[in-house]
Nucleic acid binder design. Structure first.
Lengths: 216, 216
DNA sequence: TAGATTGTTAATCGATTAACAATC
DNA sequence: TAGATTGTTAATCGATTAACAATC
């Protein structure tokens, strides 16, 4: 195939499934690089993840990278292209709503930070927590959220409140301009069109674990 | 279509996608029941979740339920059939490895408890935490894990440790007979065949939130 | 060179959606 | 009854996998 021809990167071409696999490839690549390698083949990536090589190649082609037959992909370039494709090369600002145990666990999640996920502020309604600094992030009174968001726009709102207030706090953030929500409560909610809500439900993991047979 | 004919329930027919939607239906049904309804149609469920009615009907048929044209499904029966299909009608025993903030958040996750997810013990290597009782679950020295597991078999091991010990603690649990793992660390690991590992990675959510356009 | 790996085009597979008779 | 909803069969859609020429 012709080399040196830049391919167009179209993020809308990526399926949800591909989007979920790309971080896995990135992880394998980073580890390989840490081990001193400078080149990696799709076959090797596939092997480490228990996937098919063709699937890896197809996914990687989304990033526009061109590999060398018989050799593989240049590691550094591949890492950069995956990060670029996922937009992890630029900062993503976020606020955390609900500074309980789950929220605090997220504040401490190293990999998010490493990939430019920046939590600006945390909010809570518990006077015990207000004023605390957790993992370098200060906790503010939730009553100040709308005002603070208007002064400091954030791309993403993380919702780690009790579920019965999820919609309320999300609505406030929405009114202050937030259009992406990362919902960790078991309650799903809807907002006006033009909003992206990604819900992490523990129940999906539990359903897979209870139904699937490990020996199958 | 013929009514009163019992349909066979085959859990292996369910795709991962269907398995993820079933808890959503269950949630809608429980809410409807709480509101005093005794019947619900696939159309209404679909509407509340923003899905297509045909998809809901197809998924629900997995549970073997038969609805009535023009009417819908009997709520109580539907709830029971979904719970049965997901095996949430029987208890699932688990141990928690790593009683940090994330682990504690899971101990407090009400919906898991409600669906018969039973965390028997927690383990940690922090002497500060050993002996504590969190949400009714006692924290033991991780050195006791293998021994305690052999006396009290658990179906699932939840891994909420730092990532660099994930494989180690999983191996111990594996040797003590655990065959299902719920991995909350960003590190993927492999165990011998015949093991089910479900990994919750925050990076998948982040990748979707950073790439997808809310207005699209 | 020989042979492994890439990228593309085509085939397969599986899941979603459409169509529609049955029926409450 | 008329019309909404079910369950099934068929069609469509999209993702995965296979095949294979190009090539390092």
């Amino acid at each position: 195939m012709p080399r040196g021809v830049p391919k167009k990167v179209d993020r809308s071409l990526a399926s949800l499934a591909s989007l979920r696999r790309l971080p896995l490839y990135l992880d394998v690549c980073r580890q390989a690089e840490a081990e001193g390698l400078s080149i990696i083949s799709g076959t090797v990536i596939a092997e480490q993840l228990g996937l098919e090589p063709i699937q890896v190649r197809k996914d990687l082609s989304l990033t526009g990278i061109l590999g060398r037959p018989r050799i593989g992909y240049a590691l550094r370039e591949l890492i950069q292209r995956i990060e670029f494709f996922l937009r992890w090369d630029v900062s993503h600002s976020a606020i955390l709503i609900g500074a309980g145990r789950l929220g605090q666990a997220l504040l401490a999640y190293r990999d998010l930070r490493r990939y430019n996920f920046n939590i600006l502020f945390a909010f809570d309604n518990d006077s015990q927590k207000i004023g605390m600094v957790i993992e370098g992030v200060k906790v503010y009174d939730i009553a100040l959220m709308q005002e603070m968001l208007q002064k400091n726009p954030a791309e993403i709102a993380i919702i780690t409140t009790p579920d019965y207030v999820a919609l309320d706090v999300a609505s406030v953030a929405y009114n202050a301009g937030v259009r992406k929500f990362w919902n960790f409560t078991p309650r799903r909610f809807r907002l006006p069109p033009g909003v992206l809500i990604y819900t992490e439900s523990m129940l999906t993991g539990f359903s897979v674990l209870s139904v699937r047979d490990p020996t199958a």
